[in-house]
Design a protein around this nucleic acid. Structure first.
Length: 571
DNA sequence: GCCGTTTTCGGCCCGACTGTTTTCAGTCG
């Protein structure tokens, strides 16, 4: 039993309670409890007691006891009973935009609808039109919502969406009606997946700006249209929400709609303690507006430093801002070179010389190749012979170019924790990336031991994509990531932030903890084609969300210092 | 269900839009 499972079960209980029509505050208490566990630094396992749990703010007697039962036995009676009382399809129905727990509960009780498919059928048969509180438009919206769920499951990769978002915000900023405008919401916070695109703009003429917004060429569908708020859908299926305010309200609105919800709630409660009301229109002391010219000014009202949007997840940024202890986050321009690149020596689609030319054109000072290794024959991995051809080719390339070329390998971690090349060959590389590509279905203990054992090899320098997750497609393998992080820090193995937009692994949620354990990181593109090289910027986002600074990231270092660090591990 | 420098009971953040209503409930962020 891990922290993650505890968090998941509390969130699931909250959802089930919502569907069962429970008191709103009870639902929120479970959501808050999940949040509290997630951000607490206590380790959670089968021996964690209710007493320890209830020390966490947000966990009371009732939740603590239920969790203790869950952790020690793997079961929770309360949850099992709740789950049994509610058809599982109702949970899926919550994903339909426009349909919430109240209506779902009503449809279930009145029409016996328990799955999205049934709901779709009933809509097509016009059964919803005459229900009290429903009607033709509601039914149409539900059908549209079902389409969205079926096609996109409601989530989008940041990397797939950011281009569309930037185009649209560019158009809006270009409108003469706009004074200030910005992306907001999760996309401004640079979360790895987003549900929609949020935009905040200020204008003297709301109506014209709304017309401008809802008639852009990229708009497929207008979902709602008001004077302060409108929603559209793009061809990709993602919804875009815009909020238009007067310019003196802009800083408050931008902060409010950037979120996160948890950050805002925490900010509001601080405001309340200072007898200040905080909402999207301003800060009010005894109903009098406190004028703020920008977001930094808002934070300063509470004695806080400016908090970068990436950090606004209520992961301690508010306390740090108050204590002047916010990190100086790593930036894209800090990156000096890139490692973890595959070429046509293994499964990449570009040649090493193309990569070198590209990297030189972008003024990077080093480039590190890392082909797949002997066990990864599915990916054209190098073997004991071709590895020497690879060295010769890179040596020849180095003679023609001034950018420093580092020779690496991505060596597979075998199920027993050994590496697939023997030490004699591994010792020849400038760096050895180790990673799991097979045998994903081990239990947590075995997988954790497997990876920790692999890190005992003194030639292993970088642990790649530590959890193996593929966003929106594959869960992380079962692993005690905290143990792995601590072992990496202790053994001096560097942790990769894999910057592929489908991976972004190590997850930012663990970066801060890893840093505190003493770990160092590399932001690696894991590129297989030339476009993939620029993915490193997504990795920088992840590092920033994980509170990392320039000195935490090895590929911000000059090449000499990086080489020393890579060598020191062998010695 | 949680919490408490006024509280062990009575609060719990707040506002916009839609659609179905004739003043409001549900949903969303």
């Amino acid at each position: 039993m891990s922290k993650k499972e505890a968090v998941n079960i509390l969130n699931e209980i909250a959802t089930l309670l919502e569907l069962s029509g429970a008191d709103f505050f009870k639902v929120r208490a479970y959501n808050n409890g999940a949040r509290a566990i997630e951000s607490s630094d206590i380790t959670i396992d089968q021996n964690t007691t209710a007493k320890e749990l209830s020390n966490i703010k947000g966990i009371g007697k009732a939740i603590a006891q239920k969790l203790e039962e869950f952790l020690s036995t793997g079961k929770m009676k309360y949850y099992e009973e709740l789950k049994a009382s509610i058809p599982s399809g109702l949970m899926d129905m919550l994903k339909i935009p426009g349909l919430g727990p109240k209506k779902i509960k009503y449809l279930y009780e009145e029409l016996g609808i328990t799955t999205i498919r049934e709901l779709e059928f009933e809509c097509q048969e016009n059964f919803l039109i005459d229900l009290p509180g429903f009607g033709k438009k509601t039914q149409d919206n539900i059908l549209k919502g079902i389409e969205v769920v079926k096609r996109f499951q409601g989530n989008f990769l940041y990397g797939e969406i950011i281009g569309q978002a930037e185009n649209l915000i560019g158009e809006i900023k270009g409108s003469k009606k706009v004074i200030r405008a910005s992306l907001a919401g999760s996309i401004r916070r640079k979360k790895e997946t987003v549900k929609d695109i949020d935009i905040v703009a200020s204008s003297k003429d709301h109506d014209s700006l709304m017309n401008f917004f809802t008639t852009r060429e990229c708009v497929m569908d207008v979902i709602s249209r008001g004077d302060t708020k409108s929603s559209i859908r793009l061809e990709s299926g993602i919804a875009v929400d815009i909020r238009v305010v007067d310019d003196d309200q802009y800083p408050y609105a931008l902060h409010h709609f950037t979120g996160s919800k948890e950050h805002n709630t925490a900010m509001r409660s601080i405001a309340k303690k200072n007898k200040i009301k905080m909402n999207e229109y301003g800060l009010f002391k005894e109903d009098k507006l406190i004028r703020c010219k920008d977001e930094a000014h808002i934070f300063s009202q509470f004695g806080m430093d400016y908090i970068e949007p990436e950090l606004r997840e209520n992961f301690g940024e508010i306390e740090a801002a108050r204590d002047k202890k916010l990190p100086d986050l790593v930036g894209i321009s800090d990156i000096e070179g890139l490692l973890h690149i595959h070429t046509d020596f293994s499964d990449g689609s570009m040649s090493a010389s193309q990569v070198v030319e590209y990297m030189e054109s972008k003024d990077f000072s080093y480039v590190g190749f890392s082909e797949h290794s002997i066990a990864a024959q599915y990916a054209g991995g190098l073997n004991n012979d071709t590895v020497h051809e690879y060295f010769d080719a890179l040596d020849a390339l180095q003679k023609k170019h001034s950018i420093k070329i580092l020779k690496g390998i991505e060596s597979d971690i075998m199920p027993d924790g050994s590496l697939d090349f023997d030490d004699g060959i591994l010792s020849l590389f400038d760096f050895v990336i180790i990673s799991v590509h097979t045998g994903f279905n081990m239990d947590e203990e075995k997988m954790t031991d497997r990876i920790i054992k692999a890190m005992d090899n003194k030639y292993a320098t970088i642990l790649a994509h530590p959890t193996g997750r593929i966003l929106l497609a594959r869960e992380p393998y079962k692993i005690n990531i905290i143990k792995v992080i601590e072992a990496a820090a202790e053994k001096g193995v560097f942790i990769e932030i894999n910057a592929n937009p489908f991976r972004l692994d190590l997850d930012w949620r663990y970066c801060k903890q890893a840093k505190e354990a003493g770990a160092k990181f590399l932001i690696n593109p894991d590129a297989h084609n030339l476009e993939g090289l620029s993915d490193y910027t997504y990795g920088v986002n992840t590092a920033r969300k994980g509170w990392l600074e320039k000195q935490d990231i090895l590929n911000t270092y000059p090449v000499k210092k990086l080489e020393e660090l890579l060598k020191s591990r062998k010695e």
